[in-house]
Design a protein around this nucleic acid. Structure first.
Lengths: 200, 200
DNA sequence: TACGATGCGGACCGGCGGTCCGGTTAACGT
DNA sequence: ACGTTAACCGGACCGCCGGTCCGCATCGTA
């Protein structure tokens, strides 16, 4: 943490850039037709400032997404049930997946932009490992997933794949599935995976 | 189909291009550092010929992938059990997913290149709709998925998400999971979704 | 106020996917 | 065998994008 205190204009420019980028990603249909020059121009600064502040395109999007992700991560790591660590696995797994789904729905543009960086797959992101480890840990306390056969590991990957940004975008954005309907479908699917058959 | 018969050199160049592209995508680590110029050069033709033959980058990759996909699609639509249409759903769903998984494992580079086109999400590809419709149809004949609540629809999406190319690449290519192990994990997961609890 | 350090900005760069058109060559009628 | 023609070839070329660079303005401090 050798970070020196940033200058006042630098901080203000950083904020303008975040706001402008947020705005642009929300308004344009496809994330990849928001260019770095667009962001800089919309914020009223030069490209140099943009790259100085965030390193590269991925850095910018990560900064945006991190702001949205952080409250959820905190609720999961140090919060009360049904998200926090003091929740029985059978309850926590669906709660975490639901929280992630809502996050992706509410921030489709950002999540999509992040996955569409191109240069790195979603599985290289460090927060993916955290979600995976969490889910895996919870699953392995559920009867049937306990063995060292990796079934909890794979199930964690598969469940996370069900809330991937582009799938969510396809369902909500393209096919027009309503938010609550999707939530209940995911809950239903999760319950099935956990072995809680639901009669229909 | 007003397609005129192509000239002989055109056909040969097309074949060289396919072979060269196949080779390049297999040898280079990341699909996006195979450039169109690379492909043309490796095939010993000009870029114009490459773009004339396939339209654009996506067209080239689709042509490559289609060749691998076609036998599987035929086995599923007009083949014998356990893939063909005369298979009971509880058997067909895992068989289809296993076939897809094997396809993705064996053609990781191509599947990855296809999903990494950037310009279009995997869910815009027409073959995705076919797989989804197939799986959905089979699932809806399974007790518990039958209602008009869309649980079969969502489950089909979720199961397909579990065999997405970048997840497969992460598991097999990065984390070194063995092919047979992954197949059995997927089978286990699928069985869970279908309500067939496995004791471990 | 004067002076260093820090940040600014936009011209610039390399490389990408994709286009264009003059030269070349295959296919076919005679 | 040969001429005609339409199709095809190739690589120079274009526009655009992410990212860099460096002379200049601005901030924080004595």
């Amino acid at each position: 943490m050798a970070d020196r205190k940033p200058r006042k204009d630098a901080a203000r420019n950083r904020a303008s850039l975040l706001a402008a980028a947020e705005e642009l990603f929300a308004s344009r249909a496809r994330p990849e037709d928001v260019t770095m020059s667009d962001v800089a121009a919309a914020a009223g600064v030069g490209k140099g400032t943009l790259f100085r502040a965030f390193g590269d395109r991925t850095g910018l999007i990560r900064a945006l997404y991190a702001a949205r992700l952080e409250p959820v991560e905190e609720a999961v790591t140090t919060g009360p049930p049904p998200l926090g660590p003091d929740t029985p696995p059978l309850e926590r797994v669906p709660a975490v997946l639901d929280a992630l789904l809502c996050l992706k729905i509410d921030n489709r543009h950002l999540a999509l932009a992040l996955e569409a960086t191109g240069s790195d797959s979603p599985y290289d992101a460090d927060h993916y490992d955290r979600w995976h480890a969490l889910l895996r840990g919870a699953l392995e306390q559920v009867p049937g997933f306990g063995g060292g056969d990796g079934s909890g590991d794979f199930a964690a990957h598969a469940l996370l794949a069900a809330v991937r940004a582009d799938l969510v975008e396809h369902l909500v954005g393209v096919r027009g599935v309503e938010r609550e309907r999707l939530r209940s479908q995911l809950a239903d699917f999760t319950a099935r995976v956990l072995g809680q058959r639901s009669e229909a």
